[in-house]
Computed example of a mutant assay.
Amino acid sequence: MKMSVFKACLSSVVLGLIGCTSSQVDPSHYSGFLKDYSRLEKAESASGAPVMRWLNDDAQLGKYTHVYVEPSQFYPKPQPTAAISAQALQSITRYFDVALKRELGKDLVLADAPGPHTIVVRPAITAVSTRPEGLKPYEVIPIALVAAAVNTAAGGRDQTVEIATEAAFLDADSNQVLAQVVRKGSGKPLENDQTQLTLEDVKPVVDGWASDMRLTYERLRSGQK
């Protein structure tokens, strides 16, 4: 009887700690930032990362000469935690703005406000989270599994960092939506649940998003999908 109870506990540990982190945002986790999610389709970013996106086939990207990047925001309003401070959250949105302007400014003139022949980029960070890292293959054995469970309960396990974004691209004159994208990425794992998240932990993810947006724009402007 005791062995059955032990096996049941062991199974619950396995189910709770082992799992494959999806690199795509589940539709149930859409934030509501975008006006219409029904047209989103699975696709790959310019760097090959999985994304959900929609492209307006009627958009004439060749007519745009400027880009206005609206200040990025958190949506919905975030709640700081022991690992994710309000200061860290603020630094992430500020850096997202810097990265977007740096990349998109390579192809278009950066505008200080919406105007003629201008694309408006409306970005949001829709999630920043940390959670215990899944078990590594060598740990999926009874003795190591129990030790891993104890370590997790004590807060000593590495913390997986996930961050997600939603962005809309609009015509500044007509407010017509040109494209939408939803994606997420994994930052640098934190040592434990007492480790503070910093911008450096997610900076490569944000840089990748900004670069992909520029490369995707270049492809679309040249007639590629």
Rank of each mutant, 00 (worst) to 15 (best):
S4Y: 02
S4C: 03
F6K: 04
L10H: 02
L10F: 06
L15S: 14
S23R: 14
P27H: 13
H29K: 13
L34N: 10
Y37L: 07
D58L: 05
Q60N: 10
T65C: 07
Y75N: 11
I84A: 08
A88L: 05
I92Q: 12
Y95T: 08
F96I: 06
L100C: 01
G105F: 03
K106I: 01
L108M: 08
V109I: 13
P114R: 02
T118S: 12
A127Q: 14
V128L: 10
T130W: 05
T130F: 01
R131P: 00
P137H: 05
I143F: 04
L145W: 02
V150Y: 03
N151L: 04
G155V: 00
G155T: 00
G155C: 03
G156A: 01
E166C: 05
A168D: 13
L170D: 12
D171Y: 09
D173V: 11
S174R: 06
V181R: 14
K184P: 00
K188R: 15
L190Y: 08
E191S: 11
T195D: 05
Q196V: 04
T198V: 07
L199H: 10
K203G: 11
V205D: 02
V206A: 01
V206C: 05
G208P: 02
A210H: 00
D212K: 11
R214N: 13
T216W: 15
